[in-house]
Structures are given as structure tokens and as C-alpha cells.
Amino acid sequence: MRGLTRYDLLGVTIVARATHLKALALLPTFALVGLTVACGSGGNGSGGTQPSGGAPAAQEIPAATKDAALAAMVPADIAGDGKIIVGQDQTYPPNEFVDSTGKVVGFDVDLGNAIGQKLGLTMEYQNADFSGILAGLAASKYELAMSSFTVNAEREQTVDMVTYYSAGTSLGVLKGNPENLSPDTLCGKNLAVQKGTVQVDDATARSEACTKAGKPAINIQQFQAQTDVNLQLTTKRSDAMLADSPVVDYAVKQTDGAVEVVGKPYDTAPYGIALKKGAGQFPQAVQGAVQALINDGTYAKIIAKWNLNAAGAIQKSEVNPAV
């Protein structure tokens, strides 16, 4: 759950993180795989056969059929050029990441493309730091933001949000949990999180509880990219990491079990597609497209392709739900 301003995790892009190339030779094999492929099941977590780039080679999603009524609801200033500009932090596999071939892939990308097809438009994804995406949306740099944003009341005050999946926060540790950690025993430990995510708030609150109880504070290590968070754990510079449940699950698979999930996800909440307020019927058009994809089975196929937990699937998409 990429919380208030967004609270998220996992997936490294060599193209986007060129400054990290020098360190590659020093990383263990499974860490290198996490960098080049992002993170995934036995490779990418898709549950299907995949190329070396980390995106599934099988289970391709058929193109969705345009819905003329929904397409007519898209404002002319957005639809006029035939595309929707999407703000996205592409360091968060399996939801959105760049594979080793340089292609943008992931659950959000497949679902976003299907939404665009329903609206008769092409989705153009632009990479950005997570913490700056909503500001870019407000400044009309993007026409839509789809990057595992957790829906919350604070966010709904500034943008409209269309729900499309439900995820929680998970604690990731090294295989065997050598420190015997749980979300409630992190006092004095090094904890890696992505900047701007709900996990930062979670870790901060937990650290404050530690000090109030007379225990050492949590050393919260914040990184701009989720892939850096993952590497921090796999190279043993952090004792644990907090991230969205699909991201930690994907890290487990991508590292062949070098990362382990502790317990069950908590603080479950919906993901939302963010749209600028005052955009006419655009939110309703996007919500209608998501619902149509749920109804015709495309949504379920995309979830299965990326091996996401089916328990997070929603039956009804909403605009600005009460949270």
C-alpha cells in the first residue's frame, strides 16, 4: 500500500538507476537477478513461462474491446491526441517495473493498457519518483496516475481515486528469519522502506512506540526506489523491510526464497487510480472501464498472469470510496 502520498516497494531498473551499475559486480547472484528482472516468482512471479527480462512470455492478455459510451465520457482535452499520459514509479514489481529489455511491464501496466483500450486510447507511461507523481498530476504533467497508490481520506481530498485492487503491508526478512522478527519486534533494528509510502508512517509510529516503552528506536532507512529497499535487505544492510504485500511476495519468488514473509499482511486497503479533480466524467469513465474488465474476466486474467493473491481482487470498482 503506497499510503498517504504513496506507500510502496520492490523492483530495480538498471536503465533508471545507472548510478548503481558499478556495484553490480559486488552483489550476490540473487541480488543481481532482482536488479535486472525487478523481482518475481522463480523469475517474475507471473506463474507463467517468462523470458530473461522478467515479464511473462505466456498468458498474454487479449486486447479489450472499445466501449463507445465510456469513450465518450473522456474529456476532449485528454482524448484529443489519442493517448493518456500516465505518471508511474517503475521500481515496484510486480505492479510496475522495467524489465531487462527496457520494457515497462507489470500488473498496473497490463490493467492500465486494458483500461485504455476500453476507452479507445493508448496509455503512455512516464517514469517518476513516487513522491512527485501526484504533484505532477496536479500540474497537468500527467492525465492519470497509476502506481499502486493506496486509497485514503487525505489523498481523496486532492485527487479522485478509482479502486482496482486491495493490498496490505508485509514484513520481509532474510530466509529463516535469523533475527526472529515480527512487525512488533523491530525496536533497535535496521528497517528499509521506500520514501513517501504508508510504510514510512507505519515504521515511524512503531519507532515512537519503541521509545515510549523505553526501547531503542527503529533505524528507519528510506530509499527512493523500492528496488534499493530490496537490495538493502538481500545484501544484509537491513534486518527487515516493509512494503506492499504483492511486492514482498514477488521478492520472495524473485530471490528463490532468499527473502521470507513474516506473518500475514495487515492494514489492508484498496489501490486507486488517481485523477485530477475537476476532470468532468473522466473518473466515471475509468471506473466504468475497470468494472467492465472485471465483468468480462480480463481483470482476473491479469491478476493470474502476475500471480497476485486472488483475495485482493475486487468485485466492484468505486470512485472515492469511504475509507
Rank of each mutant, 00 (worst) to 15 (best):
S41Q: 13
Q284V: 07
L134P: 03
I314D: 04
P178Y: 02
N230K: 00
G40N: 14
L275Q: 06
A310S: 12
A114D: 06
A313T: 09
L293E: 03
P94G: 05
P216T: 09
F130G: 15
G280N: 14
A192F: 12
V98Y: 08
P321D: 07
R2W: 01
P56D: 06
Q224Y: 03
K141C: 01
N230I: 09
Q254M: 04
A292K: 08
G3K: 02
G40A: 12
G48F: 15
T150L: 13
L4R: 12
V229H: 00
T227M: 00
Y92S: 03
T163S: 12
S100F: 15
A274R: 06
P321K: 01
K118G: 14
I218K: 08
L174A: 05
Q221W: 01
W306F: 13
K305T: 05
L121F: 13
A128G: 04
S140F: 01
E208C: 05
T65H: 00
V319C: 05
Q59I: 02
G214Y: 04
G45S: 11
P93H: 05
K195V: 15
V290P: 03
G43I: 14
A31N: 04
D110C: 10
T163P: 11
M146N: 15
A31I: 08
A114H: 04
C187G: 04
C210A: 09
M241S: 10
Q291T: 02
T122I: 14
G288E: 01
Q226E: 08
Y164Q: 09
G263K: 02
Q194I: 05
D267M: 10
R206F: 13
E156S: 04
G3N: 06
K103L: 14
N295Y: 02
Q50I: 04
D249M: 06
N309P: 09
G54C: 08
S131V: 11
A311H: 07
S238I: 06
A279Y: 15
D8G: 12
W306L: 01
T158P: 00
E260F: 01
L26S: 07
D228I: 06
A63H: 04
N320G: 04
G87C: 01
T65P: 03
L137M: 08
A203Y: 08
K212F: 04
Q281R: 14
P178T: 03
K305V: 02
T227W: 11
S140V: 04
S147L: 09
Y125N: 10
R17A: 15
P178F: 06
D267H: 08
Y266T: 14
